[in-house]
Design a protein around this nucleic acid. Structure first.
Lengths: 343, 343
DNA sequence: CATGCTTCTGTGAGCGTTCACAGTAGAGAA
DNA sequence: TTCTCTACTGTGAACGCTCACAGAAGCATG
């Protein structure tokens, strides 16, 4: 007369069942579940055995109801869907964050805000307290969502420095300027003297910093800044392709290009090939990100590695700390030059 | 003496507050919240107004505690992380599913099971009842996770026909065989007579079906099946590249290739270009999926469109139906030939 | 007038936890 | 002995919701 026939779900054991099984009280079981302080080793052991025997799993809803925490966090991506489809960096970040959160047994809620409407829905969801905190990925400018959430008191960590520094927002970013410097120095060390750049969006700190690094190194090498050598893009492959075309038109003697993202660098590669320039013989190309796309390119891209694993791990660490009551923090991680075939 | 100073969160209104505000009982508010049956229009209106005034949002944990439902579903991807990083189809699917779920106000929990260890952790999480159902994406073979979850009574919908049909599992798939037929007919209509194929993994129904469609059309055109014209891959770009090389070595006179995924087709394109074959002049190339990668290829890929939006919408629909008590179902969706530059 | 039906409403109980508090036992100090 | 302190344990009361049930009101039917 059992209920656990295949297909039907038996009523799962509660903390009460475990307590009875272990011969202790609910309180003791709860204490074991939450760190085991002030519990005798004997009780500790008895409870653990009972948990194993009964197959007990905590009911997160009951716990959340009383603690007020949801023990889940949201991963919010406020990018148009084309960017999400095109750029594997998001996947890398997503993977890193789920992994880092898994270590804390915290599930990740995926929130894709491609449209204004979705943004509103999601903001409402988050401010309603359905998640304890938010990992925000939004390379784009003028994104009011960070301000809104922060204003509502929602713990928040952004990937990359957000625009509005007004209300202090935590963020984790790679050292964009230093990475840019490394790449441009590398290009110069190859003997190139007409080094162009395809920048990222210049209304974002990341885009600005990478350009600043480029300028710095040119100056330090005693090279004049030539604005015909600089065109701007939006990190997308198409903008890289268009940028390279403009670059070739404005400065036909370009012999190296520093491109602010690997995706754009793929576009640059395509445009150069179409124009009959050999890479790296005629033009050396350096990317940024060390995205999976860098290895898929032909030739394989020399690039600046963003330490994605560390970035996601730090994002999670900082967010959890903030949920725990700590102040917002900014973390800057070092980059690394990865030499491949394109330079 | 208010508590809602910036940064601090005020205790949110409960159903009780709304009831008092509206001059009705908790029960009535609850009924309005859950469909509004057996509620007078007057009460209905009063409650809605009170909800608006108080800014009430339901506490999902309290609800879940009593209903036993979590009102959340898991998106489970059991693929090695390289596949997740490389293939934008996953992103498209992810986007479609979050969107379809958003309409029901159901959050999506992202579960990436790249390793055996993660698979175990996630399986435990799911069978513990922390989600109401699972959207499973696992093109790969011998995946025991579907069986395990189904055996545990977890509502499940797979993307693509799963291997083990034993315990009936719901799935939504495109009509692989028909899509393959369309593509091969298209290639033949171009006058090509030495049509090769790079198959998908032949331990998956999708891989087998696409090959079957290819064979069928050759037979129907009175062409002999030449096994030197067929090589197999695993849907990855690298395997497409390697496959094309083998194909060229085995059958140098190949004048068209049907490739079982757009990603592999990108690899094929690269290999053909390297071998000095022009596409489509010397060799026509047809892909499968209509992945975002198809448009990013040079030349742009002719391909078979999988109706991703409908696929994800159907996955969600079937899953919710199953959670609601309906029987598992299989849905096959039609594909469409999309002609672009590569043929 | 009683009876039944339908439509609507309020109330108490309880979902499975955690938390605060009260209490017990044992050790050591006065 | 008595007291204090520490280490541990049990208990009742929430948390905010839904559900079952009891009942009220209105209306038609016998």
């Amino acid at each position: 007369m059992t209920m656990n026939a295949a297909g039907g779900r038996r009523r799962p054991p509660t903390i009460h069942d475990v307590a009875r099984e272990a011969g202790v009280s609910r309180g003791t079981v709860s204490r074991v579940l939450n760190g085991g302080h002030y519990v005798s080793p004997a009780a500790q052991e008895a409870v653990n055995a009972a948990i194993r025997r009964t197959g007990y799993v905590v009911n997160r809803h009951a716990r959340s109801l009383i603690t007020g925490r949801s023990d889940s966090i949201g991963f919010l991506l406020t990018e148009p869907q084309e960017r999400f489809f095109e750029d594997p960096n998001f996947n890398v970040l997503l993977r890193g964050c789920t992994q880092a959160l898994a270590a804390h047994d915290i599930p990740l809620l995926l929130m894709l805000a491609g449209t204004e409407d979705e943004r509103r829905r999601i903001t409402r969801y988050i401010t309603a307290g359905h998640v304890d905190g938010v990992l925000l990925v939004s390379s784009h400018s003028g994104d009011p969502v960070a301000e809104q959430l922060r204003g509502a008191g929602v713990p928040l960590v952004a990937c990359g420095k957000p625009i509005g520094l007004g209300s202090k927002v935590s963020y984790v970013a790679a050292d964009d300027r230093d990475g840019a410097r490394d790449m441009v120095r590398h290009l110069l060390s190859l003997g190139r003297r007409r080094v162009g750049m395809v920048t990222g969006p210049l209304d974002t700190p990341g885009g600005v910093e990478r350009l600043a690094g480029y300028k710095e190194v040119l100056a330090e090498a005693g090279l004049d800044f030539d604005e015909r050598l600089v065109v701007s893009g939006d990190y997308s492959r198409a903008s890289g392709e268009a940028g390279a075309e403009r670059l070739l038109a404005q400065a036909a003697d370009v012999d190296a290009v520093f491109v602010a993202s690997d995706l754009m660098a793929q576009g640059v590669l395509a445009a150069l090939q179409r124009a009959g320039r050999r890479v790296p013989e005629d033009v050396a190309v350096g990317g940024f990100d060390d995205s999976p796309a860098a290895l898929a390119s032909r030739p394989e891209l020399t690039t600046i590695r963003q330490p994605w694993d560390r970035i996601s791990a730090e994002m999670v660490r900082v967010l959890l700390a903030q949920i725990g009551g700590e102040d917002p923090a900014a973390v800057i991680l070092p980059t690394e030059l990865v030499k491949r075939e394109s330079t």
